[in-house]
């Protein structure tokens, strides 16, 4: 079922649409790089030990640490 998940809980290949971001939690630079509410992000793959994660954002690849991905909520449409 579709639902609200933490970005960090998605598996490689899964994607979701970024929800409202709490500014105390995420750096403004993330938004300036194009990770905005409403954008679809996909987990491409992760580094060994599952951290950092490589995201696909609008056709390019961005790596973020897991602790940041835990603070980003996404709306998923898969199972």
């Amino acid at each position: 079922m579709a639902g609200l998940k933490r970005l960090a809980d998605l598996r490689p290949g899964e994607s979701g649409v970024i929800q409202d971001l709490c500014l105390d939690d995420v750096p403004p630079k993330l938004l300036e790089m194009g990770c905005l509410p409403g954008m679809r992000v996909t987990i491409n793959y992760t580094a060994p030990w599952g951290d950092p994660l490589c995201l696909d954002v609008d056709g390019w690849q961005l790596a973020v640490r897991r602790d940041l991905a835990e603070r980003i909520w996404v709306q998923t449409d898969q199972d």
Binding site: P27, K29, M33, P52, L62, A63, L68
Partner: peptide, 10 residues
């Protein structure tokens, strides 16, 4: 805390 944000270029 400056975040770790890394573009993986083509």
């Amino acid at each position: 805390s400056a975040p770790f944000l890394l573009e993986l270029p083509r």
